[in-house]
């Protein structure tokens, strides 16, 4: 059983990323359960999706139980740490989206180094992926989520072969598929190099 906790900000394409993981799992002959955030919560707020690969009944991942955190935004990486343990692989985009609470209540957005040190205190490993640049260089600037899905696949933690992810990508992102496959590949390699 592998539990993936996907987090980010409404509008970053997190549901699509979780669907790619879900379809890849089924193509690879595994069971999978995904849970999604819809409705009011999506409007620029913190968004959480879960992907539980294997034979489980409930879609929720309890605190301290995630095998991997896939985060699309740095502050949300920090927020997701309650789900980690020393065995957790944390993969995070370098993207920063400043929440209104920072702009208006003068709260502080921690610098990336502080976030890294907090992650390493509680989690097993930490990989940073410059998803915005990689998606731009693949020619699909809106596909940071595809880059991050590639990064998750690159860690090997899901036990799902790359070819299944690529087929799932074609099912879920049929438009500009060549560019998106390139974006996936850049994410995959970014984590492999670590």
């Amino acid at each position: 059983m592998v539990d993936i906790y996907l987090v980010g900000v409404g509008g970053q394409g997190i549901i699509t990323a979780s669907r790619i993981v879900g379809d890849a799992a089924i193509l690879a002959g595994k069971n999978v359960l995904l849970s999604e955030t819809h409705g009011m919560a999506q409007r620029g707020g913190s968004v959480v999706c879960t992907a539980r690969i294997g034979d489980v009944s409930s879609p929720i991942i309890p605190d301290g139980q995630a095998d991997a955190i896939l985060s699309f935004e740095l502050l949300e990486t920090l927020r997701a740490l309650c789900k980690t343990s020393k065995k957790t692989v944390v993969v995070s985009s370098t993207e920063r989206i400043v929440p209104l609470s920072v702009s208006t209540q003068k709260l502080r957005y921690p610098v990336p180094e502080e976030i890294e040190s907090e992650v390493l205190k509680v989690a097993g490993s930490y990989a940073l992926v410059d998803a915005p640049s990689l998606s731009r260089s693949a020619g699909v600037p809106m596909s940071s989520n595809v880059v991050m899905t590639g990064a998750l696949a690159g860690t090997g933690i899901t036990g799902i072969g790359r070819e299944f992810y690529e087929r799932a990508l074609e099912m879920n992102v049929p438009k500009r598929i060549q560019e998106n496959l390139a974006a996936f590949s850049l994410g995959f390699d970014a984590v492999l190099r670590k």
């Binding site: 900000v9 009011m40 999506q42 707020g45 301290g64 920090l78 740490l81 980690t84 929440p99 920072v102």
Partner: peptide
């Protein structure tokens, strides 16, 4: 025996907002 959930510093909230 449960592994306690990790303690993390307070994180600025991000409630939903008008787009």
């Amino acid at each position: 025996e449960l592994t306690p959930a990790p303690q993390i510093p307070p994180v600025p909230v991000r409630p939903p907002v008008l787009c």
